[in-house]
Amino acid sequence: MAKRPAYSNLCKKIQEGKFVITGELEPKKILDLSEILHGAEEMKKTGKIVAANVTDGPQGDAYMSSLVPSYLVQEKVGLEAVWQVTVRDRNRVALFGDVTAGAVLGLKNILVLTGDHTALGDHNRARAVYDIDSTQFCEMLSIMIDQGTDYEGNEIVGGKIEMNYGCVANPNSNPREPEVLKVGRKVEQGVDFIQTQTAFDVDDAKDFLKELEQFNVPVLLGIFPLKSHGIAWYFDNYIPGVSVPKDLLKALKKAEKDNKGDKKGKYAALDKINIEFFEPFIKEIKKSTKAAGIHCMAVEYERLFGPLLKDF
């Protein structure tokens, strides 16, 4: 693992040995960022969230770039951003341009992703870029941050990029061995932390975390609280490799049916199901693994953070 200083609060907290929680914000096909900023404020209010990921065109859809929302979340709300950057849409020239711009805007965390293919998105006739892959982007960031040059060794003038970067890992991967070996390649390129795709099976997640221990890099295990039955169903059917437990799907459906017309009652019932499922889940991960924390992808479901995280 790279012995890079902790530039971000996220990495500082991890180094202090705190069990950290990160949230997630998703700028979509929008111009108005008030909901994103409101979500960030709600996260900040809980006092439990160290940083919030800002997504970069998930599912290959054309959404607002993650750069400016990441900046505004930090600037207007005071919550640190984990700026997600995929290699799907930008070649190494554009990535350099964006990373230096992000550094000037004071962003401290980058999460490196390959990115869902454009063929899956709403502009499926687009040309996908993938000039460099996510592992090579990690190498490029390590050169930019640690050596102060671009990927070809040309000096970056007028300051130092003070950023930490992480990569992703998928606990749902089958077969798992190539996924773990691939994470090893990325770790060699100096990643500071790992955030994982969502996990629902606690034993499986524990096995995966155990396998990642060999790399000696802090891992934040991904969880995805289910705001509604519709979202759970979509996730179960359309997100690669993720399956939501059938009991959970049933319980969510029942809660929505039982509280038809009663918004408050429905919210309370849904929140209760999520808390009953995820609270013991997080406790178990905290107690019996070396995970550095949890990446809680409660997108547009910020009201859950307070009650879910009260004991952490």
Binding site: R88, D133, S173, P178, E179, K182, K186, Q197, P240
Partner: peptide, 11 residues
């Protein structure tokens, strides 16, 4: 995705 260091999370 023409990856040199795969697989990706889409597998």
């Amino acid at each position: 995705k023409h990856l040199s260091n795969g697989p990706c999370g889409g597998m």
